[in-house]
Design a binder for these strands. Sequence first.
RNA 1: GCGCCCGUAGCUCAGCUGGAUAGAGCGCCUGGCUACGAACCAGGAGGCCGGGGGUUCGAAUCCCUCCGGGCGCACCA
Length: 586
Amino acid sequence: MKTLIEALLKRALDALPEELVPTASRAVGIEVQGTRDAQHGDFASNLAMRLGKATRRNPRKVAEALLAALPKDGAIAKVEIAGAGFINFFLSADAYSEEIGKVLAQGEAYGRSDLGAGRRVQVEFVSANPTGPLHVAHGRHAAFGASVSNLLEAVGYAVHREYYINDAGRQMDILALSAWLRYLERCGERFTFPSNAYVGEYLIAVGEQLFAAEGMDLRRPAAQVFEGLPPDEPQGGDKDVYIDALMSRARVLIGEAAFQRVLRTALDGIVGDIREDLGEFGVTFDCWFSERSLSDSGAIDRSIEVLKHSGHTYSKDGALWFKSTDFGDEKDRVMVRENGVKTYFASDIAYVLNKLERGYEHLLYIWGADHHGYITRLRAALIALKGQPERFEVLLVQIVSLFRGGEKAKMSKRSGDYVTLRDLRKEVGNDAARLFYVMRSNDQHLDFDMELAKSRSNENPVYYIQYAHARVSSVMRQLKDRGLAHDLSHGIAWLGNLKEPQEQQLIKRICAYPEVLKVGAAQRAPHSLVYYLRDLANDFHTYYSAHQFIVEDAGARDARLDLALATQIVIRNGLKLLGVSAPETM
RNA sequence: GCGCCCGUAGCUCAGCUGGAUAGAGCGCCUGGCUACGAACCAGGAGGCCGGGGGUUCGAAUCCCUCCGGGCGCACCA
């Protein structure tokens, strides 16, 4: 509808005489927007005011000329000039009836568009370290990333969802050690668990698993394991010295091959758990990308060579540096440390190169806000690798604070007593969790109140929206119970007769859905879809309370039921993009 | 100190690339079930859009500055 009006205005503009609006002034963009006030019609354009500014002419005069040149169209009932020079468009009843017909005919497909023209977008999100179960902040990343991906897909992008598994580096060694120690406990060894190891309960299960697979083969006496190690948690000392010594000891005692087996078992267990957790949450990925695979395949070395060849590196203090300051970074970054070990950043560079080589036209990263300092250096690497910076985009998700009825929940990852995503899902349900997570803009801190999310009251938008959907089903059940039928096309033909303000409002809202998706996708703003669905549900509940659907007159009845069904379709489609179910009964 | 995010009704937040009298939910006050589900609806009170400059026909929106809050500034991952 909006595009139609834009096209009409374009033709009107082209038809204006040169002396009124010189070609040079015509470059202003044609903007059409939905109006807030029904008095101003359905859509309005500020084109005349922009042209007036460019040509130093009275905007209302320009508007009159545009109006005269505007082609006639059946969808437009009336056009008028208002205010400082707004051109207001009033749609015909037919145009709306037709659109409602489209909703009913297209069903699940309604609202989708090909705006993205099949362009390939890669969205990387969650990517939590595989050292334990996901917690509530990861839940926000998952819900947000999935919803943004779904929105992009709905408007015609070919979306590739990816999870980057940080399965390389020192933290993996600590993970393997922790798992092995749990295994030793299972074997019956007794000792004090290192303060720096991963203490979460989930590794006890891994220890159990190792015990089942390895039997007593990897058991070593605790006395032997801990003999002669530096103290853990020394006063003012370095705890890492202790854990490093312990890891070396483990490798010596069971051998590198066994150590890697332990690591593999722990990693597979945790990644499997994460995958299952996200799957239950309705969040799936096209690819789980292993960081380790980058070093194994030589991709890291290769990306370093590429940067060396293009002259963006130098050696200093025994380390190899990337000159990110050439691309706006505040300081250069180390890729290979003095001790020869590559940094995490080196992996990320290789990963960027990998993504570019896979041919994605757009790279979307979803990160925690605490990683914002990382954006510049990664963009720098991307540019140095000949990627186009405008195709690189990072969305930052602000922190989540968990509340229980107004009281802030303690979150301590160290002690392992933090609330996991699984706990949260179990307590408030997937639907409420998905919706609450994306209700706020991603750059807004989120206060997640579990009591509120659980409450079945009108404080909770989840049920408000779902209730509207269930109510439609209920009306249709009622219709059947009364032995009445519903004639869909008869209703469409009758739609023009629906003149109640609540009906007009609802029709207008339903028809706005495709535009909501376009804007929501462009802005990467799933919360705008939540707001829209709430408004739509509100319009429906209002209508429901004001008028009967199942009335004597068959025409009015069919038309009203069409409207109810169209509402239901849009709610269902919208909720699906957000990963929320649309129940028939509640 | 530097960088990013936030500051809008009592509370939690929308407000699209500047647009026509600033919106919603909750909370508060009044009402509404012998008709399709009251997990609902109708009405009301409540706002120098953090302060001050600037750009513009027009600023909550853009620019500058100050104030207040959050998060970052590793040869860690």
